[in-house]
Every structure is written in C-alpha cells, then in structure tokens.
Design a protein around this nucleic acid. Structure first.
Lengths: 243, 243
DNA sequence: CTTGCCTGAGTTGTAGGATGACCCTATGAT
DNA sequence: ATCATAGGGTCATCCTACAACTCAGGCAAG
C-alpha cells in the first residue's frame, strides 16, 4: 500500500483515530456548536487518509449525536447537551476526581434502586439476587469471579425495580467503574485488595426480602460509600443523607 | 445509481438502517454474545447494500461497544452489560410505559441534583439559575422558548452540583423527554398545553438560594412529578418519598 | 511423531474513483 | 420583482483493488 503521512498517533485503527481527533477538537471548543465541519475530502487530505476512513469516523461521531450530517450541505457539530448517547471517556476515569463523581452518581442511583426494588421485587427477583449473593460468598471469594458476582448482584436489584432505564444506567456506571478498577490493577498490582464485603450485601438482601424500602436504601448507601472508600474514593459532603 | 433490492424499511440513511437491524437482531438474542457476525460481504449481500455501507453500520455499533472487530478474523458481538455507551432508541419513547420509566429516573436524578446543588452552589451558579428562571417568567412564556428556558434551568442546577456525570446524565434524560414531547406534539397538535409552572420553579430556586438541601430536594420532586402528570405520565408507587 | 516454517484462503482495513441525490445560489427569462 | 433553471458544492452510495492480518493445513527437517 502506498505509504501515507499521517498527522496523528499510532496503534488504533484509522477511523477511530480520526474520530478521536475530531472529538477532541469539538470538546476543546476549537469547533463551536453549530459550525460546519470541513468537507469529507478536506478532512481526508488533512489527516492523510481516504475519504472512506473519514466517513467511518463521522459515522461514529454521528452515532453519538455529536455531529449531524445533512446531505448536500455538510456536517455540523451539535451542542453537547443534545447528544443522543452517553459515552464516558476511558481516559477520564484514570483521574481520581472523576472516579469520585462517578461513585457519587452511583450512590444516588443504587440507593434509590434498592429502595424501589424493596417495594416491587417479586419472588423471582429475590431468587436472582440470592443466587448472586451465594456466588459471592462461595468459593469464588476473593477471586475475580467475586467481582462478577458483585456486578450480578447489583444488576439483579436494578432489574427488580422494573425500570429498564434504571437498570441500563446502573449497569453502565458499574461497568465503567469495574473496568477502571481493572485497569488500575494492571498498572499497580497491589490494588487487588478490593475485597467484596459480603456482610453488607447480606444486609441489603435481608432488607429487600422483608420489603423494607428505607432499610434497603440505607444499607445500599452505606455499601456504596464503603466500596468507594475501599478503592480510595471518599464521598465528601454527604448532606441530605440519613435524614 | 443501480437500483438495488433492499430487505429493510425506508426513510433513514442506509448505514443507520443496517445498524438498527443488526442491533435488533443482537438485542433480540438472535445472535448470542461472543458469536461471530457474518462477514461484511455476506451482510452486504443480505441487506442488498455495498460493503461500504455495512462497514459504516458496524462502525456505529462498534462505537457503542456492541461489536468488536478483529482484523483478519471477523466481528464479534459483545455482552450487553459491557457497553461503553448508553443510547436510548427514539422509537422506544413513543411507548407511554417507557416515558413513565424515564420520568421516574429523572425524578431520582433531579431530586438528588437539587439537594446537592443547594449545599454546593456558588453565587455564580445561582446567577445562572436565576437567569433561566427570568427567561421562563418573561415574554417567552407559553412559547417554545420557555421549554428551552426550562431545560436551561434544570441543567444549571445540575451543573451547580459540581458533578459532571450528574450533569451529563440529567441533560441526556431531559433531552430525551423533550424530543419525545416535541414529537408527540407534531403528531397530535393538541398537546401544546405543556405549560411551565413558574411557581414551582421559584420555590426550587428559593430553596437553593437559602442553601436548604431538603427543601430543594422536595420542591424538585414535586415539580418533576407534576411535570410528569402534565404530559400524561403518572409516577406510581412513590414509596420512600417524603420520608 | 514432533516441531517449525510456509503457503494459501478468508477476513477486515484502506485507498481511490465514479455516480446519484440533494442543497444553495446566481443567473436569466418572464 | 418574481419565478424557473442551471451550475457548483456536498454528502450518500457504489464499486474495485489491494494491504494487513489470522488461521489452518501441508510439508519437510529433526
């Protein structure tokens, strides 16, 4: 293949690199919302790639709602508030401050999730939650599998709310946190003492089983806050809690 | 252009249609996680489009983390829980049940948002919130602009929490609801009585200005519940509220 | 038999060019 | 002044060709 000179980094596939580059330009404010992007041909020249690659990059950005393309006119960048998708940048999660914020959001969602689940969960839901709990306390203890079981536990509760959006959002947030921790462990092997506190989970389960919304919410809140501090995140300024 | 026979619907652009079709097949369980997709050529034949279109479709799905492609091997579908993005299908929001769930999620997020904002907001934050409030009560009343001002109001509060994820999630949820209402109004012109209740907003603002977290949270909760019922959504089973 | 290399088929990644569909504007006729 | 039309610019789609990569199977040396 003809060797082309590229102005961007390495490793990742070309469309992804172009998309990231454009994304950064937009996030950084180099291109203001409403403005038109250069034409596909111009971008292809600029990045030293084929127009096909540019189109795939734009396809990704468009899927995020970051860009809207109008045939015969051009591609325009959208205001960040009207994105049709939520994506969390993996890089951003390496920042401890972002982890704090993510845990705070998780605390909010999960607390209410437990509260709703306590009021609405069916016997089947309880079975699923119990199953995850058993996996956690079983032989998979301290293993990687226990983290999976932990995720399963929280997802099962979210499912029991009967609200698919709550389930989606919680799954998403938890997964981001999990991957972030996983990454941190790779770079710093000492980190694998993120033990799962089984007792806390049992307390949550008991509250759910007895259909006690308030107790479930409070147990969950304590659990999330504890989990946060266990990975080095302190949820500060917890007003309005324990009201 | 050569006329090709397509097995899929109409209107939207080809790559988006292909992506939606594949997405539905994956969500529906026709293709289990871990399995390999047909080759790009096969998909191109199947859908009656060029391989290029298939590639753009896959680029979208890959951006969502729904699919992972490995050069020389194939494309594989990922487990739904480890998506790197959240997207809400516009079609799904036409279902009233989904709107209920979305409003329930919004109620949770916004209530806590107001609570946190009351404790953390700076004078600058209050100014921004006040500005949105003024726009609402001003001449833009009953107009489309008042809805924009309403969004501005809620986003300003979310920003005052100092938590960028809370801001992102609330912006996202609000925008989904706004667009859904906008769409409903197009199909049913009688719907434009979604008046903005200024008094409720003032009450929220006052609570924020006096840094009263509990009052802010409660005012916001009432406001969201009221807004929900105004567009025909009843938030049922509101346990754990007013505790 | 085992090991290692090599080759070839299959698949995704990229390039580049051609054409259709669409939007906007300027030009010119009415 | 108004409207129809032509032209150029842009995205949408298609096509073909080739590069890069993976994997499995053949094959020869040990």
């Amino acid at each position: 293949m003809k060797q082309r000179s590229s102005i961007i980094g390495s490793v990742e596939a070309l469309p992804h690199r172009v998309a990231s580059h454009l994304s950064r330009e937009i996030e950084g404010g180099d291109i203001i919302p409403g403005a038109r992007l250069p034409t596909e041909s111009q971008l292809a020249d600029k990045f030293g790639v084929s127009r096909n690659v540019v189109r795939e990059a734009i396809a990704q950005l468009r899927a995020d709602g970051m860009i809207e393309a109008r045939q015969g006119v051009g591609a325009f960048v959208m205001a960040p508030e009207q994105r049709t998708a939520i994506r969390i940048d993996r890089e951003a999660l390496k920042d401890q401050r972002n982890m704090e914020q993510l845990f705070e959001l998780r605390s909010i969602l999960e607390t209410e999730s437990a509260t709703l689940a306590a009021a609405r969960c069916t016997p089947d839901d309880l079975d699923a939650i119990k199953a995850a709990l058993d996996r956690m306390g079983g032989e998979e203890r301290w293993e990687d599998g226990s983290i999976e079981a932990d995720l399963l536990f929280h997802r099962a509760i979210a499912r029991a709310t009967g609200n698919s959006y709550i389930y989606t959002f919680i799954s998403f947030v938890c997964e981001q946190i999990r991957q972030s921790i996983h990454y941190a462990r790779l770079t710093n092997p000492l980190h694998d003492l993120v033990e799962v506190n089984v007792a806390e989970h049992v307390r949550i389960y008991d509250a759910l089983a007895t259909h006690d919304p308030q107790a479930a919410g409070e147990a969950m809140r304590r659990h999330i806050d504890g989990a946060a501090s266990r990975v080095g995140v302190e949820l500060t300024a917890k007003i309005n809690r324990g009201k």
